[in-house]
Design a binder for these strands. Structure first.
Length: 135
RNA sequence: AAUGCAAGCCGUUCUAUCGCUGCGAACUCGUUUCGGAGAGGAAAGUCCGGGCAACAUAGAGCAUCUCGCUUCCUAACGGGAAGAGGUUCAGGAAUGAAUACCUGCAUCAUGGAAAGUGCCACAGAAAGCACACCGCCGAUGGCUCAAGGCACAGGUAAGGUUGAAAACGUGAGGUAAGAGCUCACGAUUGUUCCGGGAGACCGGAAGAUUUGUAAACCCCGGGAGUUGAAAGACCAAAUAGGCUAACGCAUGUAGGGCUGCUCGUUCGAUGUUAGUGGGUAGGUCGUUAGAGAUAAAUGGCAACAUUUAUACUGGAUUAAUGAUAGAAGUCUAAUUUUAUUGGAUACAGAACCCGGCUUAUAGGCUUGCAUUUUUU
């Protein structure tokens, strides 16, 4: 399903603080991604927050455009590239996607880059998991 | 018709697929189906003014900030309307000439310089009670027998130089030379009188003639309590702990206080059940029907007011109102000739709500004024 309801978005201020203080992160231009696994069970495996900083983009119109494009791409790709590949567990993945590009790119660029982000994220998750599994 | 200026208005549309946030309806009550709604003229800047809310508050004064021609409009304003006056520019007419007259456009933080203090660089003799540099005169008095402007007293702001600004302007009389000293035409006036106007002010007569600066301090008059929807009101899970009651447990126990110790005395858990206040996550309200919009009539020069009629769902809260593809429209360039191809399609995104101001804005429309050209 290509839905993107409120349940899939990260809205709680506490969770967001937790994510940015304790989560791991990597940069894959033009996105900065932060993520954190927590034990709280949830209806969806991932909650995401999409972000474009006011410091970087002064105009509200620009920020809206960035967030809308990112959200649209995420909505269309998440099921096939993220949800299906993620290992089933009680854990919830908190995710932040922050746009840090120097300019605003067109839709196809977003499509390509975000799919790269998903691949790297899944790779990082399995690497993080494996040592803990050994212990 | 074109161009320019000013004012006002509009500021892309349709289809398909996949979504987001409210609302309504249906039932098989599922984050199911159907229906319908979903950014602006500035939503912006947060520069003013209000509503609303909490807190503060006897009254008065001082300080601080702010506003400043008049009348009116408004909930209010630093906003708006209509006027008054000044300044600049243009045109016209008059005069011997002019700073004077008339008309129009633009523009002005436009209270007070006669309450006081200060400042006015450079230049210049002098920058405000004219300490006379050059010049003019030397009538009157002095020197001298006399003549004589005489490095005598003195008179003089007409002329010169400087400057942003030079002591009312121009002309005539007058005089030794000059001077509002006198006169004519003007200028200014916070002096008096008369007349007009609601008032700012205007007109007339008489009198007077000591620059500018208050966006220097200052004086006068009006206004301002503080904070800002993260205001504020309410509901409230789980967990932990607080309090109360009952039961249970003990010879009132374990343990503690008083004491050097003992006695004595005093405090007194841990469990179970029920109740309860505070309060966290989270949620609800505040929150979108209004000092509102549109139209007509009436009153008013106008801003605006009154009456009647009509229609009325943006409401998010890590923050919706979208994404992609195609087509059309508009503007524009080239090819070439009336259709192709390319490009452009602005400024910009509600965050409690209103009234203003300011700033940004592709393109289009309407009205008015000015100029040019064509036709009659």
């Amino acid at each position: 399903m290509n839905t993107f309801t409120k349940e899939e978005r990260l809205c709680s201020r506490k969770s967001i603080d937790l994510l940015f203080n304790n989560g791991s992160s990597f940069l894959l231009y033009p996105f900065r991604v932060s993520y954190l696994l927590i034990e709280t069970p949830h209806k969806f495996p991932v909650q995401v927050v999409i972000n474009a900083s006011k410091k970087r983009y002064k105009k509200a119109v620009d920020r809206n455009l960035i967030k809308r494009r990112t959200r649209e791409v995420y909505r269309l790709q998440k099921q096939s590239q993220l949800y299906d590949s993620i290992p089933k567990s009680d854990k919830l993945l908190l995710l932040s996607v922050q746009f840090v590009g120097k300019q605003i790119y067109d839709y196809s660029f977003f499509e390509k880059k975000l799919s790269g982000v998903f691949k790297k994220l899944l790779n990082n998750l399995t690497v993080d998991d494996s040592p803990s599994a050994n212990l």
